[in-house]
């Protein structure tokens, strides 16, 4: 019987503690799941990050082993599409012990938070990471408001 508020309080306290513990367990689970190979088995997509810095967006994607000829980037308004092919680089005449990297074709599309200026967009490929600098359109840029 819960006759006093303090008993109820204690019960909820214990439940909160349990919930925190559970959250932490799943946090650990995600941790290992997230760190697995990104672009590996057939049908998997490259992992991407999106950063926003005032007047531009920066998109980064993990594309190990893909040359720039095998990558395509399309932009229209706030629509971004990254597609590509990872060619098989297995050497001839070798016995295969393990293949985790695989070769595949992927296509991933995004809706960016704002329209970007496709003309001024820049793309760079360095150490297996694709860097996209996407300046926002004039209308989407932040405006400084002067206080009167």
């Amino acid at each position: 019987m819960f006759t006093r508020m303090s008993d109820l309080d204690r019960m909820f306290g214990a439940m909160d503690l349990l919930r925190n513990r559970m959250d932490r367990i799943f946090g650990d689970f995600d941790y290992f799941y997230d760190c697995g190979p990104g672009l590996a088995v057939n049908g998997s997509l490259p992992r991407t990050n999106l950063y926003e810095d005032g007047d531009h967006f920066e998109v980064r994607a993990e594309v190990p082993g893909i040359t720039k000829d095998n990558l395509n980037v399309k932009i229209q308004g706030n629509y971004l599409e990254i597609s590509g092919t990872r060619a098989a680089d297995s050497p001839d005449g070798f016995k295969v012990h393990r293949t985790e990297r695989g070769s595949n074709t992927f296509s991933r599309s995004f809706t960016l938070p704002d329209d970007v200026d496709a003309e001024k967009a820049e793309a760079a490929l360095k150490d297996g990471i694709l860097y996209l600098m996407l300046p926002k359109t004039e209308a989407a840029r932040p405006k400084q408001i002067t206080i009167k």
């Binding site: 990104g38 990050n49 999106l50 926003e52 810095d53």
Partner: peptide
């Protein structure tokens, strides 16, 4: 910049 989403 501010990260909007991060997968790696």
């Amino acid at each position: 910049g501010v990260s909007k989403w991060e997968e790696f």
